[in-house]
Amino acid sequence: MENKNNLSWPKCWKHSSKPHNFCPGCGHPIILKQLGHTIDELGIQSNTLFGIDIGCSLLAWNFFNVDTIQTHHGRTIPVMTGAKRSKPKMVSIAYLGDGGAYAIGMQHLISARIRNENITVIIVNNANYGMTGGQEAPTTIPGQITATTQSGADEFFTKGPELLSGASESPAYIARGSVDNPIQLKGFIKKAIEWQMTGKGFSFVEVLSFCPTNWRTDAKATIEFMNKLKSIYTIKEFTKENK
């Protein structure tokens, strides 16, 4: 059943693992809550394998009453690929940070897109490496101060959904949402998983997320930095449909 007001906890929430271990103000719990509601609404709790990567995303290893497996360095994508190919009727969701997806595990992400693997990949983009102490990420924006760009980051950064859209001619569900619009985000996640469930192939959601701990921002500055990210990373659906 659709949860219109989005206020209650998802039914697939694992209560013994709460309160969770994410930092105060972190965007992960917002994303996970939307994912939880989506799992409830689609009725896939018993049929989903949730793969989690290294970095802050791994703190979600016991977040849900959903079967999980955890690894590192973007290898979550091949793990979920192997699992999905072996058990095509299950729902396969890979949950990674921007480092695992766009740097150390980029070949897996691009290859999953090009081979049109029937899995859903959710990438959390918070413009830095959170768990290791706020170093530069592939998504760090020009001028951003991080632990490894102390005088400001260079002008190069990675636009995942745009890259994946161009990486193949085959149709795919690709979107970028953000944690400051959870209702819209849930819509994207739901469409992505439904895309997989109808056997259409690769689906992907990048989520712009808060990291006040490493951004060193208070609530107001967090929202301001999010707006800055949104001015660079367009929120939209990049979906490629069959012509």
Binding site: L49, I69, T71, P78, V79, M80, G82, A83, M90, Q107
Partner: peptide, 12 residues
């Protein structure tokens, strides 16, 4: 990827 996909298949 080959190693990790093998693991993915084995766990299922």
């Amino acid at each position: 990827s080959a190693g990790f996909a093998t693991i993915g298949a084995v766990v299922t």
